[in-house]
Design a protein around this nucleic acid. Structure first.
Lengths: 146, 146
DNA sequence: TTCCCTGCAAAACATTTGCAATGAT
DNA sequence: ATCATTGCAAATGTTTTGCAGGGAA
């Protein structure tokens, strides 16, 4: 539990055989550039005609993260959400009310993060950034009924 | 699941009576400006001489978050971590290896987040930002033994 | 006294893991 | 044929909830 990465064995995460299930998960992940939950991906893969177990989905996602083919992010509820790597790094602006998301790219922030880390002597720096707000469409709605 | 804030009833989160347990949790939370897990806070409160149930700690923390007296953040393991509000807004740079944390403040990022949100017509914007890296002390250690 | 808050334990939820069968090489 | 990977279900760890008793107002 919460063990530091690098403490556990690196073996076991490297996939040596290509299976239908693993490809299905990777393909499904690559279809969208939004962060999605394991449960969501599992359902989508199944809907696509590939019977896959939930545990297998988790294992495939973990492998993809370990091999840097996917990014993982924790939602507000604490569930992990995954997104395929490879595209340009960007963040998300999420509406608290309707859930609409807008992709935002911030070179300034990337630079700032890198700079700050360097100032503190940190290397191999990554960061997670999420913006939450209320979109213009939802502004006029009843925010509370109590 | 992942329900948008504002959709649920605001009542029930407002505390109408002051109890020893609730004060103990709030006091313990205010002792440190680091993000701490519920389990950690629970242990600390108990060690301080106040027998408190874990569920009560969770309820107190939830109340503090709801009343904007505390900030909540999800760790990489998915566990929620809490910090008392009131101080200047800043972020954390966490070492992946030894877990050391450094507080970093970024007015530029705050400004950027606000600006980006405004460009998209979003209001009441908040954000979460975490930096992960390897500190200089841990750079020389054996990253793997396999 | 009243009824909110607490405490315990079970439930709910996301994720991991053990072990036998399956399928890729 | 070999052995990594799958699948199920049980285990794990975190957070929530039901219900009855205790303490604050």
């Amino acid at each position: 539990m919460n063990a530091a990465p690098g403490t556990d064995t690196p073996s076991g995460t490297v996939r040596e055989r290509s299976t239908r299930q693993f490809r299905a998960v990777r393909d499904e992940l690559g279809r969208s550039n939004d962060f999605r939950s394991a449960r969501d991906i599992h359902a989508a893969v199944r809907a696509g005609g590939s019977p896959v177990g939930l545990a297998t989905v988790y294992r495939a996602l973990q492998t993809l993260v370990d091999t840097q083919q996917a990014d993982v992010l924790r939602g507000e509820g604490g569930e992990a959400r995954y997104r395929a790597c490879g595209e340009s790094h960007h963040h998300h602006l999420v509406c608290r009310s309707c859930g609409a998301t807008a992709e935002v790219s911030g070179p300034a922030v990337e630079q700032w993060a890198d700079d700050i880390a360097a100032q503190h002597g940190f290397s191999d720096v990554s960061h997670t950034l999420e913006l939450f707000g209320t979109c213009s469409t939802c502004r006029g709605r009843t925010p509370a009924q109590g």
